[in-house]
Simulated assay, not measured.
Amino acid sequence: MTTERLRHLTTLEGLDRATLTRLLDRAEAIRRDGAPRDLLAGRTVLNLFFEHSTRTRTSFELAAKRLGADVVNFDVALSSTHKGESLLDTLHTLEAMRLDALVVRHREDGTPDLLARHARSAVAVVNAGDGRRAHPTQGLLDALTIRQHRPDLDRLTVTICGDIRHSRVARSDVHALATLGVGEIRLCAPPALQPQPAEFPRCRIFDDFDAALAGADVAIMLRIQKERIADALPDDGAYFLRYGLDARRLALARPGCLVMHPGPINRGIEIADEVADGPQSRILDQVANGVFVRMAVLAELLGR
């Protein structure tokens, strides 16, 4: 992609460094200085979530409202999709109401791209998470959080641990961090939850969490995507013993290692309370940055 203004945001894969940096700089400027509360006055943003969400849906709603846009939260449970209406018919029906942006979360990979391709209007499509493929605004907010605390990205070692195979967050994080020039990216998971190495050519893949964490500057923990796993699930207690982040394991990382998690957290399974709530945790920073990043994305796509 070029550094021209974005039309949609469905993935970070293929996005150039200049564009990524521009979005992060804009989010940081909004965090520091705020943004005009009428920037998106007269614009309408519709949240179209086919999967449950707390952080992403709420932060998109706050982001749009803080920029002056009108926001509609589409209730899929009460919609005509339950009467057999196709996704594209739903799209065109909503377009006829003159929307400016459609924020989409869906269980199927590629759904936001499908909507962007078939849109008949100038509506901007933002991916709020599709299947296990991409979660671009999460990748941006994670990159922003790391950059705020460790700006020397080319010297960092970032370890991502958990259910990598089914994680759209891991994919978007890797796309963002690799493009921004992070020195080393490590992925750690049990063999059954590891990705195909060809998916992540820039990453080192581990099944030993202690080894993956040794000397790391950032540890990003992921939950097991139980809703996407067809095979037998790992036992929670056994999983924590091998792949849970507790104080002992955190001591293997570099002093001051940032602890991150996209949420929702399963305490005592992927992370211990003492770490999730400890002084190195940046989990709530991620939540706060989610609003600033989504403001930056909506301003980029819709700002006049």
Rank of each mutant, 00 (worst) to 15 (best):
residue 177 L to Y: 03
residue 296 A to Q: 11
residue 158 V to S: 05
residue 37 R to I: 08
residue 48 L to S: 00
residue 87 L to E: 07
residue 51 E to K: 09
residue 234 P to M: 08
residue 291 V to M: 14
residue 163 D to C: 02
residue 164 I to Y: 08
residue 54 T to Q: 13
residue 62 L to E: 09
residue 24 L to E: 00
residue 16 D to A: 12
residue 298 L to W: 12
residue 253 A to F: 10
residue 79 S to W: 03
residue 47 N to A: 09
residue 188 C to Q: 10
residue 126 V to K: 01
residue 109 D to A: 15
residue 37 R to A: 15
residue 282 R to K: 10
residue 169 V to R: 01
residue 212 A to W: 01
residue 207 D to E: 15
residue 34 G to E: 01
residue 212 A to V: 04
residue 48 L to E: 00
residue 299 A to D: 08
residue 135 H to F: 06
residue 75 D to F: 00
residue 246 D to E: 14
residue 93 T to S: 15
residue 287 V to N: 06
residue 188 C to D: 11
residue 275 V to H: 01
residue 27 A to M: 00
residue 111 T to N: 00
residue 301 L to M: 06
residue 287 V to P: 02
residue 274 E to I: 02
residue 231 D to R: 15
residue 286 Q to K: 01
residue 219 A to K: 00
residue 68 G to C: 04
residue 221 M to I: 10
residue 105 R to C: 08
residue 216 A to Q: 07
residue 244 G to D: 11
residue 230 A to D: 14
residue 111 T to I: 14
residue 297 V to N: 11
residue 9 L to H: 03
residue 42 G to M: 05
residue 26 R to I: 08
residue 59 S to G: 03
residue 134 A to N: 14
residue 23 L to F: 06
residue 101 A to H: 02
residue 113 D to K: 09
residue 235 D to P: 02
residue 99 L to P: 10
residue 102 L to N: 00
residue 10 T to H: 05
residue 113 D to M: 12
residue 247 A to S: 15
residue 59 S to E: 02
residue 10 T to W: 05
residue 91 L to M: 04
residue 16 D to C: 15
residue 59 S to Q: 02
residue 82 H to K: 13
residue 248 R to F: 13
residue 145 T to P: 05
residue 229 I to S: 10
residue 41 A to I: 04
residue 25 D to Y: 08
residue 150 R to E: 12
residue 228 R to F: 07
residue 27 A to V: 00
residue 121 S to F: 10
residue 246 D to T: 13
residue 7 R to L: 12
residue 183 G to E: 04
residue 262 P to L: 04
residue 160 I to N: 02
residue 75 D to A: 13
residue 175 H to C: 08
residue 217 D to Q: 07
residue 11 T to E: 12
residue 197 P to F: 10
residue 15 L to S: 05
residue 152 D to K: 12
residue 275 V to C: 03
residue 213 L to M: 11
residue 12 L to C: 03
residue 47 N to T: 14
residue 176 A to P: 01
residue 59 S to C: 04
residue 62 L to N: 07
residue 191 P to M: 13
residue 244 G to C: 08
residue 56 T to R: 10
residue 264 P to I: 08
residue 99 L to S: 07
residue 273 D to H: 07
residue 132 R to Q: 11
residue 224 I to T: 05
residue 144 L to C: 02
residue 58 T to I: 12
residue 60 F to N: 06
residue 110 G to Y: 00
residue 56 T to C: 03
residue 161 C to T: 15
